[in-house]
Design a protein around this nucleic acid. Structure first.
Lengths: 192, 192
DNA sequence: CGATTCTTTGAAAACAGTCAATCTGTGTGG
DNA sequence: CCACACAGATTGACTGTTTTCAAAGAATCG
């Protein structure tokens, strides 16, 4: 399982063999079954999680019991509740698996240690965070500026891989509309 | 004008006199008049901007000419288009002053230099970025989960200082609703 | 096959957007 | 100091979109 992560670290973060060994030493391999939680509301997020295989989602549950999906994550993405991770506060979110998954977990103290001992790794993670900030800002922009149809179009062109493997009602949840509305928007679109 | 920034750096980032001098050496003081642009759509964002006094907004303009406000910023906040700044790409946004402002600009190369030579500064900026990530993620959550009234309530409790100094139609724009809708939501709220 | 989960559809109600008009407060120039 | 212009806020009437609830059709999986 670690090979995929190793390849990723080599290609994306440009780590050498020794550095990769340092990462390996603190990596925990884990399998997460479909529907299983990786993080539950109220828990503190202690890990960084890299996805070797599978698909997960992070979401909140409103007072009315409705789920609101904050993000999806697939192979070669990271997922964790950064707010809880950074502040040690109980998470408002859940993370669970939409498919059987293989992930690699790195504990917070170990991860901090990697960041300080491997400058290349620190730079890489910093640039990842910067890009996820850009992505999330673009999402805010699209939430306040675009119509439902535009947001849907945006989603399938930006994340065709995700679109193909998660149920539509979850995409609706991600976009902030009801499943019925998304269904209707799609059928109108098909008839053009 | 620099004194306010100095105080901020001392208190928040714990910089000593020598470090503050290094920051001062690359700081450019600037006054921005109400309605004046700090950044215009199409330009590349070259600076970090710290606000000593005043209030600014960052927004996009849609094809239909409608403005969508991404964020406000007041005293002791930073504002810049991070996406353009990081990638050197032309900005999709405008930043302009809602009041007469005093700001401090630090050029990108100078700023990078400060980050590498002053580890405390780097840590401080990293934690700022982490918190702004949390903030923006909470905004996504509120956009997809809450009603207009809840979002409005949220805004005035979280940012009472901003609420008191920017026109309502800009808050409407920030929340992603028309000014008329926000006006009606408010009056319903008052009548409870 | 039966059971779940997912998607679609219909009809009514709630909500939000648009356009136009009015009301309010602020500040500037005469 | 007043009149006027101007930006901001509100209201009404109308239209369009989205939600909600209920039901029924696909698709998938054991």
């Amino acid at each position: 399982m670690f090979e995929a992560f190793e390849k990723y670290l080599k290609e994306k973060a440009d780590l050498d063999a020794e550095e990769i060994n340092a990462v390996r030493a603190v990596s925990m391999e884990k399998k997460v079954r479909k529907r299983q939680y990786l993080l539950q509301n109220g828990d503190v997020c202690h890990n960084n999680c890299f996805i070797v295989k599978g698909c997960l989602r992070m979401y909140t549950v409103g007072d009315d019991g409705v789920e609101h999906i904050l993000r999806f994550a697939v192979e070669n993405w990271w997922i964790s509740d950064r707010e809880s991770y950074n502040n040690g506060s109980p998470s408002k979110c859940n993370i669970d698996a939409l498919e059987d998954c293989e992930v690699i977990l790195i504990d917070k103290p170990d991860f901090l240690n990697l960041l300080t001992t491997i400058p290349k790794f620190k730079n890489f993670i910093d640039s990842l965070l910067a890009r996820s900030y850009d992505a999330i800002q673009n999402r805010v922009m699209s939430a306040i500026s675009y119509t439902t149809e535009e947001r849907y179009q945006n989603f399938i062109t930006r994340f065709p891989d995700i679109f193909n493997r998660v149920p539509l009602h979850m995409i609706a949840s991600y976009l902030g509309v009801s499943r019925e509305t998304l269904s209707r928007v799609r059928s109108q679109y098909v008839n053009k």
